[in-house]
Simulated assay, not measured.
Amino acid sequence: MENGNSKWRRPNSVPYPSIWKRFNGRKEINGVIPKFWIQDIPEDQFEVAIDFMMGGFPYDEPLNKYSKLEGDSESMDTLRSFLREMLEDRLGLVCYAENPDPNGKPIVAGINVTHIKMKHEKTMEIKGKTLSKIIKALDLVINMKDVFDMFNVNACLSAMGLYVAKEFRGQGLGLEIIKARENLCKAVGLDVIVTTFTATPSQIIAERAGYKVLSEILYSDLERTNPTYSFPGIEEHTKALKFMYKII
């Protein structure tokens, strides 16, 4: 895991926070089609965003779920720290649902902890055996290709988790959040987006958004490569890790 804060800063010319996308949902909630917008996560909402992610991402994302990450307190604390550090890039995205109460606050419907990834970065210390296993498994597929040399860039947008609240699933939020990354990248001057998609549904959504596979490895091959990288039960729901990209 690497630290994306060392050599890149969000341009001061790009307003922060900015709204990157507005859209309507796909199905009614209480008789009304909900309205959503996607924007930068404001600094005063970083902890809210982290709490939102920690409330679902460790339990739903396949590598986390099938390694029982939630049972390793040290790994959970480290994941929280990683999310906090990545949000400091001021590139994280939040999808808000319009509150039906005119005096109510917007409702957090989804979060994508997007952050900068640099060619030369300081390695972050991973504390917790479970998280260390997960990160090493991710690194296997990521390190199959050198994205910086392939695309002749020194920085690109990456992500550490996308989570949508259960009550808003089926509204197309995942696809819209992934698409909103493009507007963000155009504004801040990033030409490439890379993400490791660990589940079949997210891989399908990424393909619909125009992402292509850079490298992939079957979970069964992952375990054969190193028995340490075993995630019992994961293949019942998803078959492969896919490192995917999109050129902006």
Rank of each mutant, 00 (worst) to 15 (best):
E2C: 13
E2L: 15
S6I: 15
K7P: 04
R9H: 15
R9W: 09
N12A: 13
N12G: 14
V14K: 12
P15I: 10
F23E: 02
R26L: 11
E28G: 15
I29E: 03
G31T: 14
P34T: 06
F36S: 04
I38A: 02
Q39K: 07
D40P: 10
D44P: 11
F46V: 12
A49Y: 00
I50Y: 00
D51K: 00
N64M: 08
N64G: 13
K68Q: 12
E70I: 04
G71I: 09
D72G: 02
E74A: 11
M76R: 03
M76I: 09
M76C: 11
D77K: 14
S81P: 06
L83I: 05
R84F: 03
M86S: 11
L87G: 13
D89R: 02
D89N: 15
C95V: 05
A97G: 03
E98C: 09
N99T: 13
K105T: 15
I107A: 00
M118D: 14
H120F: 05
E125N: 03
E125Y: 02
K129V: 07
S132A: 11
I135H: 03
K136L: 09
A137K: 05
L138Q: 07
L140F: 11
M144V: 13
D149N: 04
M150Q: 11
N152K: 12
N152F: 04
V153L: 04
N154K: 12
A155E: 15
A155H: 15
L162D: 00
V164W: 00
G170D: 05
G172A: 08
G174H: 00
E176R: 01
I178Q: 14
I178S: 11
A180K: 01
R181W: 05
A187Y: 05
T195E: 13
I205F: 02
A206H: 01
G210S: 10
L214N: 14
L218F: 05
L218G: 07
S220P: 04
S220T: 10
E223T: 09
E223G: 05
N226E: 10
T228Q: 12
E235S: 08
E235W: 02
E236T: 05
T238A: 01
K242R: 14
